[in-house]
Design a protein around this nucleic acid. Structure first.
Lengths: 254, 254
DNA sequence: AAGCCTGTTACGACTACCGTAACGCTTTTG
DNA sequence: CAAAAGCGTTACGGTAGTCGTAACAGGCTT
């Protein structure tokens, strides 16, 4: 019936696009029906029916002006999820401790859909700090999140690296060969330091987190403004990160 | 075609039961396929298809042993929701401030589906404290959450009060007439104090939160162990609560 | 080894879902 | 001030997507 896009179907399409709708609302608060429809290349009646169904259950909420936002049921779901996902539940207090010691912003990131995804964070009480956001996605090939790539099996790794590497700043690696070499280096030393590869004025340090079977399932990260981060600070971060990572890994059964 | 249960349909059934599945997983971590199916009175193949669809999108996660939990996408959704629901976003810092001053646990509760639902909370750093949980539901007719009932239009109010009032402790009001009288009193004095109506050893104080149009949309609450809560403490809580409530109301446009 | 549970697959029947078209309505355009 | 274009919404008939039945494989218990 259709060409090749939808690989094979053991799934419920209605549910699938309903998730699309949900994520679209999450990404664009106060979005309108017609905009969702056009974003997803779906008809308005279809989206309307889904929004109504979800509104009735409190997953989304419709404002008087006709725009949609996520609803209270989504909050309940998310809170429950935070306690059910082992990685996040375990990492949260450790991320906080790490952030207190480093006095900088910390994150937990995983690979999701070919990108790195922030699933937990801590920000210190400090006037100037790096801002982190749960749900924010970044390329796997730029910045210290490269650690997530470094330990993958070579073929999977190649698959994850896009043909053209996104150039976020002038320091971003855009040559495939250089990237692979860098990944090798990361694997040897066990951490990755990025000076302004993602954002000009930011230093970012990441270390892999090992699952019970020794595979890399996440990365812990410290992000700091470049101007107040000396070489010695980076070294300190690395020690703190390795400590945090091994605490998480231990509690995951490694 | 079917009797009378499903009122009228402008909704997508597939999406509707998929939400049921999601909420069931949220409530019962590590639940199995067949248990969900029996909980919802649905067939296993149907639920399996839905779980697969949601797993593929990271909403749920299947463990090696075949049990299901919520997934990372649910965390992302929930975090986004917390910032999109005005009431929660505004209330959170005020709840914290209130909790710090009272040095006890605070909650924000709304009416949802004939029950009171906790959608935000703060717990102080203290060895012994009341535990609150986002997503936890309680009867509207017991404890200080009665404030949510007190300001409703009489007919709506009557509709919300079940025929038999659930008896949680020996202090719970179970007589309909006494309840209505109590609601009148609450309306006059503007707050509600519960001594062990929900849980034997707990004191709970609640105050209504007004929306931009002056209607009651939520309740702020302080919960404390009875043994360390004097009459004077209750009076202090009431002052703090009224202050917190009016701050929230103000920021909502009232 | 028989029984019962689980999760899973396959497939034909049917209904629930979808898209088209047309409707009010407000806002923008001429 | 009328025309046009956008919005959300409703209705309805055709079909594709979804559903349930039935049967399967595998793990535990009896």
């Amino acid at each position: 019936m259709d060409d090749s896009s939808t690989e094979k179907n053991n799934i419920v399409q209605a549910v699938d696009v309903c998730i699309d709708v949900l994520l679209d609302v999450a990404k664009n608060p106060d979005i309108r029906l017609s905009e969702i429809a056009s974003n997803l290349s779906e008809t308005k009646p279809r989206i309307l029916r889904m929004l109504r169904t979800m509104e009735q259950r409190g997953l989304v909420r419709k404002s008087d002006s006709g725009t949609y936002r996520l609803g209270t049921t989504a909050i309940v779901l998310g809170t429950a999820a935070s306690t059910q996902v082992d990685l996040v539940r375990i990492a949260n207090p450790i991320l906080e401790e790490l952030g207190q010691k480093a006095n900088e912003t910390t994150q937990l990131r995983i690979i999701d859909n070919g990108e790195s995804l922030c699933i937990a964070k801590f920000e210190p009480m400090r006037d100037l700090r790096v801002q982190a956001m749960i749900g924010r996605r970044r390329p796997l090939t730029a910045g210290s999140y490269k650690v997530l790539l470094a330990y993958l099996q070579p073929q999977v790794q190649q698959q994850m690296i896009p043909d053209v590497l996104p150039k976020l700043t002038k320091r971003t690696i855009t040559d495939r060969g250089k990237l692979v070499a860098e990944l090798e280096k990361i694997k040897r030393q066990g951490f990755c330091v990025s000076f302004g590869e993602v954002s000009e004025q930011l230093v970012s340090v990441s270390v892999p987190v090992l699952a019970f079977d020794g595979s890399v399932i996440a990365a812990v990260n410290v992000g700091a403004p470049a101007f107040r981060t000396q070489r010695s600070d980076v070294d300190r971060f690395i020690v703190l990160l390795k400590d945090a990572s091994s605490k998480i890994s231990a509690r995951l059964g490694w």
